[in-house]
């Protein structure tokens, strides 16, 4: 018989003040069990103080084929970076 426990993605906040970061995935019957399993698997050595779990198939991801239209437009907009602007050396605190 097939194990029909869904797959969950696990995100861990390693300490107060930091983002939750993807840690990996696991199977669990429900969200509560996913958190308990994530505790056992991903935080055995104080790696976390907060856990998020989300069912893997609820995540929508961008497609690598779409990368050019999504990300390339940013490449030639160098005026979005502070180094684009000419500043004489004597200007301080800017």
């Amino acid at each position: 018989m097939k194990n029909n426990w869904p797959l969950w993605e696990v995100f861990i906040r390693s300490k107060q003040g930091l983002h939750h970061k993807h840690a990996g995935s696991l199977h669990a019957a429900d969200a509560q069990m996913a958190i308990e399993n994530a505790r056992d698997v991903y935080t055995r050595r104080n790696e976390g103080i907060s856990i998020w779990v989300v069912e893997s198939d609820k995540i929508t991801a961008s497609k690598p084929e779409e990368n050019p239209e999504l990300f390339e437009p940013a490449a030639d907009k160098i005026y979005r970076h502070p180094t684009f602007y000419d500043m004489p050396d004597e200007v301080k605190h800017m």
Binding site: M1, N3, N4, W5, A29, D30, M33
Partner: peptide, 16 residues
């Protein structure tokens, strides 16, 4: 362990 996995799923479905 199969019955444990099945029971956990049945419980999760009932809760949902």
């Amino acid at each position: 362990g199969a019955w444990v996995r099945e029971a956990a799923m049945a419980y999760a479905e009932k809760q949902a």
